[in-house]
Design a protein around this nucleic acid. Structure first.
Lengths: 202, 202
DNA sequence: AGATGAGTTGATTGAACATTCAACCAACCA
DNA sequence: TGGTTGGTTGAATGTTCAATCAACTCATCT
């Protein structure tokens, strides 16, 4: 196994564990035993546990297109449909995990109370990538939305709703909380599209 | 100092610390040193650290009216205004703490990945109390909302938006993220009130 | 062949952790 | 007065933690 493999193996394992147990509850030993890598090797590539977290956050940041958007948007062309297709992807995660799923970035953001600036910036960058992607959908549908709609704010709002909906579904262990939240969001977006069409606010 | 005082002092201190540092990052020693109470006394009242958490969650649950709603709703009579008055309270917390504030329940919900059922039920009960209070506002304004509006879902939605908005403002250390999210929510509620008034969906 | 150095090994370190416990205290009552 | 109860003290326990490091492997280069 070469160097790149070892580094990758550590990061992939850490990504899994941080998602399953959270950052604080994952010990370096956990990463070592699951990845079958010895402590010296880990510390050869990473100065410390936090640097592993940084590596994981960089993977998420750089992989959002391939790992998150592409799978959910495959075959979905309408930009508004894409918004809800992405949310449907989160719903699937919740179902598959018996409503145990948590957004990895959101969990980290609330778990780490005094984040190192490097870590915080990476969490923020992940949020920005996500809401910017959604805002891009609204941009592509700009002519169907009321004029003057703040599409960036709308992207951030969808992120907010996703995070809040996942948080509640997970806490109650009940997908209904996710579905009802998304239904309200859908109602809002539907109204926006309708008011733009009939020109009532033009 | 009598028994009730000691117990109370432990819970108040733990409440502070769990909010400042989170549950996992707060050690029993932290609670002991700040509360000036010795380990034996703490373990006389609480079987373990998790039971302190349970006590804190019970305080939140039982104190939502007095500690959270009453202060924010004092002098605010209109039910819709009350919804946004509560959200404004969270905004104040964010401002006062330089956007470091996090909803204590939301943070715990995402921090603890495998919660004991007792803990999880208490977190859920706290969410329910919150969103039920908001749903109560919508109930009081039911005649100004479109008929058939799911007001319970709307209460959960407001909770979702608060949690997501706080999460983003905190991660970016920028109140703008909170304000934009609330502005979008306000837009939605405003539209609901307007469509009910002009009867366009009646 | 010999030197170089990136990468690996795993026992070890010292700090921090939650929890325990035997001894103690003070108020109240028999 | 002596016992009982409810609460307190703080040193001690055993565990887990992140991190270290001297010794090693082995491919590559001179």
């Amino acid at each position: 196994m070469n160097a790149a493999d070892t580094r990758q193996r550590i990061l992939m394992t850490a990504m899994e564990l941080f998602w399953e147990k959270g950052y604080l509850s994952t010990s370096v030993s956990d990463i070592l035993s699951r990845s079958q890598i010895h402590s010296g090797s880990l510390y050869h590539f990473f100065p410390g546990k936090q640097d592993v977290l940084v590596g994981v956050l960089e993977l998420y940041r750089d992989g959002i297109g391939e790992m998150l958007l592409a799978p959910n948007w495959d075959g979905v062309d309408d930009p508004i449909d894409r918004v809800f297709a992405l949310l449907a992807g989160y719903r699937t995660h919740l179902i598959v995990t018996d409503c145990t799923y948590g957004c990895p970035i959101g969990s980290l953001a609330l778990e780490i109370h005094e984040p190192d600036p490097v870590v915080r910036d990476l969490m923020a960058a992940n949020f920005t990538n996500w809401s910017t992607a959604i805002a891009g959908c609204f941009d592509a549908a700009a002519d169907r939305l009321p004029p003057g709609t703040d599409r960036k704010a709308l992207g951030e709002f969808v992120l907010t709703v996703m995070e809040g909906a996942v948080m509640q579904a997970r806490t109650y262990r009940d997908i209904g909380y996710f579905d009802r939240n998304i239904a309200v969001l859908r109602d809002y977006i539907t109204i926006l599209l309708a008011t733009a069409k009939d020109g009532s606010f033009a």
